[in-house]
C-alpha cells in the first residue's frame, strides 16, 4: 500500500431537491488499501459511492479518480470494476454471455470462463441469468467487477444474500486481488467484515463523516464493556455500574485491571456473576454511540 491517492473527494455535496444527502464530504483512498465506507441507512454512502463511480453528478465539490473525473468513462472505467448494490443483468442472457458483454465493455481483457471459475459459477455458465438465485446473481456481479483484474474495485454490499461458503470464497478472491495491488472500496452492513478487513473506515451519518480512521483508531475512543448480572441481595460493586434493565455494564478503558478487580470482588464476597462477558470495543459499539449522539437513543 502506498500513500498515492487513487480517489480524492473534496467538499462533496449531493442534493436531491431539498434533501441534502451528502454534506461537504472530503476524504482520500490510497492505492492498495481496502477502504470501507460505513453508515446507517440513509447516511449517504450510496450517493457518495455512486458519485465516485461516475453514476451520479455531484451538486458541488470535486471528485477525482486516478486524477481525472469519474465521468470520463473511457479513461476511468478500464481501470475500475464496479459491483453494484443491485444486480442489473438481463434475464434473457446466459451467465457467460453477461460476463463476456459487461467484461468486454470495460475494455479490460480476461477469459470469461476463468472468471466464472473464480466465483464458482462454471456449472451455471450456460444458464439464463433469470434462472439464477439471488446469491448466484451476486457472484455474477462480482465476476464482472473483477473481470480483467482492475486497479480499483467498488464492492457495494458484496456479501448480502451469500451463504457462508460463498462469502469466504469472495473474500479470498478479494485478498488475491489486493495481493496484486488492487484498491478496494467497500460498503457493507456486516460490520465484522469491515472490522476484520478494512485498512481504514469512514463512518457516515446523516450525510457527513462522523469519524474516519483505522479500526483501532475508531474503537479506542470508546470504552470496552463488561457485562454481567447479579443476584438481588448482592453487595455494592466497587466500580461504576450501569444498569440496563437488570443487565449490568461496566465501561472501562482498562479492561484487564477492572475485570481483575470485579472478579476479585466476586470471589471475596462469594457472589456469582451470571451471564459474564467482556470484550474490546467493536465497530457496532461505535455505531451505537454515533446513533445515541445524534438521536439520543
Amino acid at each position: 500500500m502506498t500513500t498515492t491517492p487513487v480517489i480524492e473527494v473534496e467538499n462533496l455535496n449531493v442534493r436531491y431537491g431539498d434533501f441534502h444527502a451528502v454534506k461537504d464530504l472530503s476524504f482520500q483512498v490510497r492505492r492498495g488499501e481496502l477502504y470501507a465506507l460505513l453508515g446507517t441507512n440513509g447516511a449517504g454512502k450510496t450517493s457518495t459511492l455512486e458519485t465516485i463511480e461516475g453514476h451520479r453528478q455531484a451538486t458541488s465539490g470535486r471528485v477525482r479518480v486516478f486524477g481525472t473525473s469519474p465521468g470520463d468513462r473511457q479513461a476511468v472505467r478500464p481501470r475500475m470494476g464496479i459491483m453494484l448494490q443491485e444486480s442489473g443483468f438481463s434475464p434473457d442472457l446466459t451467465v457467460r454471455e453477461s460476463v463476456r458483454l459487461i467484461g468486454g465493455l470495460t475494455r479490460r481483457t480476461d477469459d470469461a470462463d476463468r472468471v466464472l471459475d473464480v466465483v464458482g459459477l462454471t456449472r451455471k455458465a450456460g444458464t439464463l441469468v433469470g434462472q439464477l438465485s439471488g446469491g448466484e446473481k451476486r457472484r455474477l456481479d462480482f465476476a464482472t467487477a473483477v473481470y480483467g483484474t482492475p486497479e480499483l474495485i467498488f464492492l457495494d454490499e458484496p456479501t448480502t444474500g451469500l451463504d457462508i461458503q460463498s462469502r469466504d470464497a469472495l473474500w479470498e478472491s478479494v485478498d488475491r486481488l489486493r495481493e496484486n495491488g488492487s484498491t478496494v472500496v467497500l460498503t457493507t452492513h456486516y460490520l465484522e467484515e469491515a472490522q476484520e478487513r478494512a485498512d481504514r473506515i469512514g463512518l457516515m451519518h446523516q450525510g457527513v463523516f462522523h469519524r474516519e480512521g483505522t479500526v483501532a483508531e475508531l474503537t479506542r475512543t470508546l470504552p470496552a464493556v463488561i457485562r454481567f448480572s447479579l443476584p438481588p441481595d448482592a453487595p455494592a460493586v466497587p466500580l461504576t455500574v450501569i444498569n440496563h434493565d437488570g443487565a449490568l455494564h461496566i465501561e472501562t478503558f482498562d479492561l484487564q485491571k477492572d475485570m481483575f478487580q470485579l472478579l476479585g470482588w466476586a470471589h471475596d464476597h462469594g457472589v456469582e456473576l451470571s451471564d459474564l462477558s467482556a470484550g474490546p470495543t467493536r465497530l457496532d459499539d461505535v455505531f451505537r454511540a454515533i446513533d445515541r449522539t445524534f438521536n439520543g437513543g
Binding site: 453514476h55 468513462r73 472505467r77 478500464p78 464496479i82 444486480s87 459487461i102 465493455l105 475494455r107 464482472t144
Partner: peptide
C-alpha cells in the same frame, strides 16, 4: 438496472 450496468462500463 441493465442500463445502469451498461453505464458502469467504458
Amino acid at each position: 438496472l441493465f442500463l445502469k450496468r451498461l453505464r458502469s462500463t467504458a
